[in-house]
Amino acid sequence: MALVETVPPPAAVIVEKPVGKTPWERVKPFVLAMIVPALLLAFWQVATTRRWTRLIPTPYEVGEYMIDFAVGGIYDDAFSATLLTHLMASMSRVYGGFALAALFALPLGLMIGRIPTARMVLDPFLQVMRPIPVTAWLPLSMILFGLGPRSAFALVCLGAFYPILLNTIFGVRSVDPKLFEAASMLGCQGNAQFYKVVLPAALPSIFTGLRLGLGLAWFVIVVGEMTGVPQGLGAVIMDGRTLSRTELVICGMIIIGIAGYVSDRIVVMIGNRLLAWSPTHHG
């Protein structure tokens, strides 16, 4: 009996979806995703035009302000056409703080995951430190790193640190023990197993940690920029708050949301590329 003839077609081939989707199927995800934002926008419109509140501007006002914030030409105040400057300032802190967090959390996580002594020394301490919110660190951070960007950087870094660390530890610890046996049996032993088995096996989990970490970096950027930095989306929101300019606050919120979303999609795309082998890892 020839083996080749008994081979069923692989799942990879079957998975290929038939081409030629109907136009509705193509736009359906987009339409469905727009329902909740549209309802929210409608409610906002009704609430502000009916004067349920006088403190929140109408969607139109915010939209208009957003354009002024982005390119100027409508109000021409201190914030006109400064969006890009603030966005870049925040992005540099988010990605910088995230990179620094990854730089510490990855090796530390690999160590805690692999070396029992390191785990016993560091794990209890880190578990106690973890529940302390970034907001609580704000005063200490300003004392340690001074008022300004360094403090913001440190706080963002702290926010991104724990998800990366914990997921790395989890990934390293949950490698299927059978894979170590298999590697040993095939002649890959000792430290070589770290690179050949532990790292690749932990990669999906490490990747989840990085993704969560980057998300949290965006999440804490406003707190990070409460430290008296002149530029950044968080700083803009804080300024908007002190100046009672709610439209500025809402613009800042929307931009952080979109920037965080875009940055997450990019990470997911990279992940789908790198982790094509993992059946459970498609976001």
């Binding site: 299927d176 059978k178 894979l179 095939l186 050949k196 993992s278």
Partner: peptide
């Protein structure tokens, strides 16, 4: 092994080549 313990991150080719490459 009972569940074969293949390396899920390696292709068929690389799984088979794991020993020689090691």
């Amino acid at each position: 092994f009972q569940d074969y313990a293949l390396f899920p991150w390696l292709s068929v080719r690389d799984n088979i080549g794991f020993g020689p490459a090691s």
